[in-house]
Write a protein that binds this DNA or RNA. Sequence first.
DNA 1: ATTTAATCGAGACGGTACGTCGTGTCTTACA
DNA 2: TGTAAGACACGACGTACCGTCTCGATTAAAT
Lengths: 199, 199, 199, 199
Amino acid sequence: MTANPARRSETSRQAILTAAFDLVGEVGYAKLSIEGIAARAGVGKQTIYRWWPSKGAVLFDAFLALMGGGPGDDAALPDTGDLAADLKTVLSATVDELNDPRFDEPMRALNTEIVHDAELAAAYAERLDLPMRELKRKRLRAAKEAGQLAADLDLDLAIDLLWGPLLNRWMQRGGPLTHEYVNALVDTALNGMRQGAPG
Amino acid sequence: MTANPARRSETSRQAILTAAFDLVGEVGYAKLSIEGIAARAGVGKQTIYRWWPSKGAVLFDAFLALMGGGPGDDAALPDTGDLAADLKTVLSATVDELNDPRFDEPMRALNTEIVHDAELAAAYAERLDLPMRELKRKRLRAAKEAGQLAADLDLDLAIDLLWGPLLNRWMQRGGPLTHEYVNALVDTALNGMRQGAPG
Amino acid sequence: MTANPARRSETSRQAILTAAFDLVGEVGYAKLSIEGIAARAGVGKQTIYRWWPSKGAVLFDAFLALMGGGPGDDAALPDTGDLAADLKTVLSATVDELNDPRFDEPMRALNTEIVHDAELAAAYAERLDLPMRELKRKRLRAAKEAGQLAADLDLDLAIDLLWGPLLNRWMQRGGPLTHEYVNALVDTALNGMRQGAPG
Amino acid sequence: MTANPARRSETSRQAILTAAFDLVGEVGYAKLSIEGIAARAGVGKQTIYRWWPSKGAVLFDAFLALMGGGPGDDAALPDTGDLAADLKTVLSATVDELNDPRFDEPMRALNTEIVHDAELAAAYAERLDLPMRELKRKRLRAAKEAGQLAADLDLDLAIDLLWGPLLNRWMQRGGPLTHEYVNALVDTALNGMRQGAPG
DNA sequence: ATTTAATCGAGACGGTACGTCGTGTCTTACA
DNA sequence: TGTAAGACACGACGTACCGTCTCGATTAAAT
């Protein structure tokens, strides 16, 4: 009665994910349709409905496939000992990704879908956000242990303080996302608004 | 040929905005339809299409109307001299609003619509975000002039640093939004992650 | 409360009738609309609704105006003494009219409207059909009195027998309407299907 | 891409035709709508649009279905040897049908639709009118060969002469359709207006 | 190697909503 | 008061997709 994954056509799966990712870039998320994906992928609609519960889930998988399936077990944020520099490196990479038009629209789409779909949000949290957050936490914990961060600093708050402004500016289109912005952000977050970047 | 605003029915306008706001709260944004709004408002669909370009635009106006048309000219953030306390007050109020189920769904809806509709984003920026941002800038500028903030601090970055984490956590459902969170956020942003909140 | 014909704008009336007649020829009856007539005539919709009860009524008046208001009191069918020749003359003229593309579409439109609108049908009967029928009856009565028709012939049946085949062929597009057809029709109707046209 | 007749749902087809026929009788042709037919038939609108090009085409098929798909190959007009009697029989049956309110409105509707839709007119001619006309021609040809009709009589004109007056009177509501009318019509058409019906 | 059952492409189906057009009524401003 | 203009509530249009369903035709496993 239930779908048997063993029988699943890998060809169709790939075609669907590719079609979904391409289409969302071409026509935008609002005009993305299951019918459109099926037609583009040369696939019956049922094949999509059989394996994914919603349009957002397809998009999410397309995204995951592109990302290489999320961070591997051995992935880690750079740790040169210079926390500020490392954070600037990581955030700059994020900024570059967000500025890449190839990723911008699909990422926005996924984000907005998550807002309305609790199940999808859970999958997103578990498979993409949580692993990344753990990596961030790990790097900050190391810095804290090295005495580079306040001993009573809440690490989740710290992550919010670094990534929140960036992601919020991106989502709201609140201004350009540049490396300069990232640098100032990291310096100010580390040293506080009360005093400028040191030296 | 084009609609003449002078002849516009205020009754219908109000009914539409009310219906839109109520419905988005009841059925959610995904199931919100122009047809539904028109039916609920006792209005012809054409009357909506005549005056608003999109579903999001209606929702935006509904939002504006609820907000009392945006901040008045004489509006200002509190200034007791204690910057930290004032920020905590303001951000706590924001948190309360974001936690109010009456506002949560419509706000999310508006935000996701903005992500995909550039024109709507511009209207949002101009009529809601920009005025608020100016108020924030004003308060921070006063603090800077009082020597409570670094002289070279970029005010827009500062605003991002304070509101960004909050809004991002809300949008991504990254965790509970509490007054404690706000307090820690303000203290850490002001003093930096390198040192804890001052005794 | 009711419209006062004295105040009626003759300019608008003419513009409306002209617009209606022109439009029905251009876009066909199915796509003819009150809005279209009003726009073409440079007239408010209300002006049409004030003076005509229906789209068909406008068309009917447009038709009447074109026809010069129906047959005058002194109008008569030709009477040269040769009944067959006279009928052929009259029916040939009718055929020419029906073949004129300028009249064809409006006439069809009026006819189909009459089928569904009893009030319009009455107006048509009274103002166009009945007067014409009386003229036909008059000519045939003269022929009967001259001994050219059977003494017990029902004149209305006779009219049907002459005009019915013609109009039915036109309405049903049952074949070309030619003068030859008319000639054969008149001869056969007069002499009967049992014997051919005399010598 | 195009509809595949093999997969067509016979149930839906029947429901649509029945609904169309019933509705045209209940609300009249002017108020007949695709939406109404779909609702009555418990069918999606698309299912109608998929298989029929227009409202008139649906009505036409409904009509055809009711008629049993047109005359069969072995159908024929009665031939007792008495031409006048046979014609009176057939035309009387036609008159009865035209007077049946169950058929009157749909027939009028179909006729008016034919007037404006050339494609539909062709379908009508080919599938309903032409087969019937051939039957009529056959009966008249037999009469001609039996010497009961003029040798040079054009059979199509003859058919017009017999059915034209009847159908025209019906369409124009030119008077009551009775068996007496039919009898007089047949006699006069056969013998001509110049002489009465033979003793 | 053959069976056999799930998956596949295709696409019809009952629905919902879309955005547009036209209806007939109403209101406003002008002549 | 009649008029041009046009907003209004309403109903239908014809289209796009939804998610479900059936239909042969692969196709890959278990015989």
